[in-house]
Design a protein around this nucleic acid. Structure first.
Length: 299
DNA sequence: GGTTGACCTGG
DNA sequence: CAGGTCAAC
């Protein structure tokens, strides 16, 4: 059992359970999860997390994963720009962005289109059980996220057995591409957000990755903290609380079709990033969580 | 270039 | 209807 003490605010439950990552489970008063080829068991007490793991270097892994070096106070003060987000920040104080492995993140969000969080969890779980490696820890079974190489060799029919539906062909094709071109993730890291998003979403090789999923990949696994993914929740939030930021021309976004055209997406993204600044991605995560709260009361 | 409908699956 | 994207107008 090792300890990691955070100097600034940190909340493990919010960070693991806010819809950024989908392969952590809470069992026996402990968060269990797999990163690459290791199992981690995490508990929080005040600003300390207690780590039990198969990874001998787990402290450093956790520091990276939970963005230990981010200046949390500074980031929060930069995005605390209006009463609405201030409320969200208070409600989810200690929520942090997570730095995921690029492929694990890509696979997760390939599963995420037009479905809900519990279903994303199930799809990833099915894929890991069928194609991942089995690990045993604390007398429990865990499975690694399957590699691009494994999934590139998978039959479409076996992917479909994992209940991923029409996403099977996205997963297969993207796995084939990443298996042979894994350097693309390094190329993306030195690009700016606009170009990186374009490269990911325009590439027909990254089949199934549009602008929204591209933004998630860039925010959660490429350190692009200005990325501001716009999903249905965020779109509703913008309509309700940030409409005043939009050009009058763009008011037509009010028509209640839930999906955005790529043009509308890029426009809204620019507006929100201009507003929230270089840490817009943190703002997005607070707004996403806040919507989860208010949704239950207003609908 | 901007719209529209189909799409696996589960609650 | 849910953390969207693709293919056809």
């Amino acid at each position: 059992m090792k300890k990691l003490k955070f100097q600034q605010q940190f909340n493990l439950n919010y960070s693991l359970n806010c819809g950024q990552t989908f392969n952590w489970t809470n069992q026996d008063d402990c968060w269990y999860g797999v990163i690459k080829n290791d199992v981690y068991c995490l508990k929080q007490d005040d600003n300390v997390i207690y780590i039990d793991s198969t990874d001998s270097d787990c402290i450093n892994t956790m520091k990276k994963y939970f963005r230990y070096q981010d200046n949390y106070e500074l980031i929060i003060s930069c995005i605390s720009l209006d009463p609405f987000i201030q409320t969200a920040i208070q409600n989810f104080s200690g929520l942090r962005l997570i730095r995921q492995d690029p492929w694990e993140c890509t696979l997760s969000y390939l599963c995420a289109s037009n479905t809900n969080i519990s279903n994303i969890r199930k799809m990833l779980d099915n894929l890991s059980k069928k194609f991942g490696n089995r690990l045993t820890f604390h007398d429990k079974q865990f499975f690694t996220i399957p590699s691009p190489s494994t999934l590139s060799n998978a039959y479409l029919s076996d992917l479909i057995k994992c209940k991923v539906g029409y996403r099977a062909k996205y997963i297969k094709r993207s796995a084939v591409f990443i298996d042979q071109n894994s350097y693309i993730f390094d190329e993306l890291k030195i690009m700016n957000l606009i170009n990186a998003r374009k490269k990911l979403s325009d590439s027909c090789e990254m089949f199934g990755v549009g602008p929204k999923i591209a933004d998630c990949i860039l925010l959660f696994s490429h350190d692009m903290l200005d990325s501001f993914p716009i999903d249905t929740r965020i779109l509703q939030t913008i309509k309700q609380y940030y409409r005043y930021l939009l050009d009058p021309e763009m008011y037509k976004i009010q028509n209640d079709k839930s999906t955005l055209t790529s043009y509308q997406y890029e426009y809204l993204s620019k507006i929100m990033i201009d507003y929230f600044g270089p840490y817009a991605g943190y703002a997005q995560e607070f707004l996403y969580c806040q919507y989860g709260l208010s949704d239950k009361f207003t609908r």
